[in-house]
Design a protein around this nucleic acid. Structure first.
Lengths: 257, 257
DNA sequence: GTTGATTCTTTATGCCGTAAAGTATTGGCC
DNA sequence: GGCCAATACTTTACGGCATAAAGAATCAAC
């Protein structure tokens, strides 16, 4: 089970995102923590445990109780918003256009894909109602800058920006959740798939006859990098192919009005 | 906060998915419930409350305690798997190819999009490690059948199937989560966006200067159906545009090798 | 009529986020 | 120098969650 998170109080969230915490000289004991430290700890914990991490775990990693965090951060939702935007800060904010828009978009997509791979929990943070943090803006700005160079009108580009984002997110989800599930149960991808499909074939022996088109799709596989687990290979191949098709579509729009 | 769900014990899940519950003549009190009834109740509750629904709520809707469900279903994860596949049963299992593959894929995508709209919680169920239920298979088989008619090799088609699925899912997520967030706080989409961007502009007055490309993207809006809320309009426009681009890409692959 | 499997309820355990209240520490002001 | 009020942090507690464990009621087969 996983719960998705994000979207705390807008004003408080946005102030923390864009302004950071304001710490003048005030009475009372010196703060032993900081929003930054808490966000870092949160990311570290979430990288290991996913979005279902507990405030207690974050506190523990900082040598405090869970409640100590509430001095700095209004609640778990707001913390996740901050973690999300901090993660987006890992992405480059501009891409060279020397070889045209296509390699640039490809690199943008790969960078985002890899960022998702490093921080799987990000994929569980709600996307509509975007967090609206500065670094997410910056990342999207980078993609927009590339695409604007195609000369296509904003009307067309909005759909394209969405499509690219959805695609990268979806493709990343496939790998990342598979990896997570394998890790949770201690199984490697291959074993998980084997166990699952073995049971399936035992219960429904003639899948191939019932779903002939799917069976057809599964044929015609390419040789594969043996150093990567099966699913990772599959996902990477599909990522490249799918992205290629998407970019072909954009190219069509660019070359002919 | 939302937790994602799915992926219980493979054997038990798959047996329930493909075989249903086997109920011979046995001693003991007559069962007052059934897996089917529980799955239906689960879907009804999840439609209202999302994946964070409680077993108590499902039991209550059936006039039982939460624990009564565990007689029929191993746990919440497995129940979600069953709910997921039941939902996929709402989709058509084949599409006419009279006008070629393009309108057929478009209709497939729209049907899936609408299904997501009816059952938003489905978008939170893990996609990797697919549930592997018969109806999900059937839905994908329908898409595969359409795409095979393009004559493209399986190698290409796998990426395309992925891309289409990711795109529909991502686009649907945007609307659906926006709707859900508005519903949770009692705000309409417009108000939510207004409140959020008002705060943002107050704190960061020259967004347009900091992110010029994004600002450029936001210009050039089309006239819009005033009966739909703002976000729904936006999402629908982006869905159509993005899908168009994607299909253009496929068309390119079809017409020239 | 008894046995044993089965349905369903009750109770209890151990998580979770976080509200409320208490304690200790500090700067500013008289 | 001494007090006040704000702050950092802990302790305790609450209500909610999934679900384990144990018990009560029900029924077919012998």
């Amino acid at each position: 089970m996983v719960v998705y998170a994000g979207q705390g109080d807008p004003r408080r969230s946005i102030e923390l995102l864009w302004r950071g915490s304001v710490t003048e000289n005030r009475p009372g004991p010196k703060p032993g923590l900081s929003v930054d430290a808490i966000v870092d700890a949160g990311i570290a914990v979430a990288d290991e445990q996913g979005l279902a991490f507990s405030m207690r775990a974050v506190g523990e990693r900082l040598g405090r109780t869970a409640m100590a965090l509430y001095t700095y951060v209004p609640g778990k939702n707001e913390l996740v918003d901050l973690m999300y935007d901090r993660t987006m800060a890992e992405l480059p904010t501009s891409y060279p256009l020397d070889d045209g828009w296509r390699p640039a978009v490809t690199r943008w997509a790969h960078d985002l894909w890899e960022c998702y791979g490093r921080h799987p929990w990000v994929l569980q943070v709600s996307q509509a109602r975007p967090v609206l943090g500065p670094h997410e803006f910056a990342a999207t700005e980078a993609l927009a800058a590339i695409l604007v160079s195609t000369g296509l009108p904003g009307r067309r580009l909005r759909g394209i920006v969405g499509a690219i984002n959805y695609f990268v997110r979806g493709a990343a989800q496939t790998v990342v959740e598979a990896r997570a599930a394998g890790g949770a149960t201690g199984e490697a991808d291959e074993e998980w798939w084997y166990a699952r499909s073995a049971v399936l074939l035992e219960i429904e022996p003639d899948l191939a006859r019932k779903f002939p088109m799917l069976h057809l799709l599964e044929s015609d596989r390419e040789p594969v990098d043996p150093s990567l687990p099966y699913l990772e290979n599959d996902a990477l191949e599909n990522f490249r192919n799918g992205l290629g098709v998407l970019l072909d579509g954009i190219e069509g729009a660019v070359t002919q009005p």
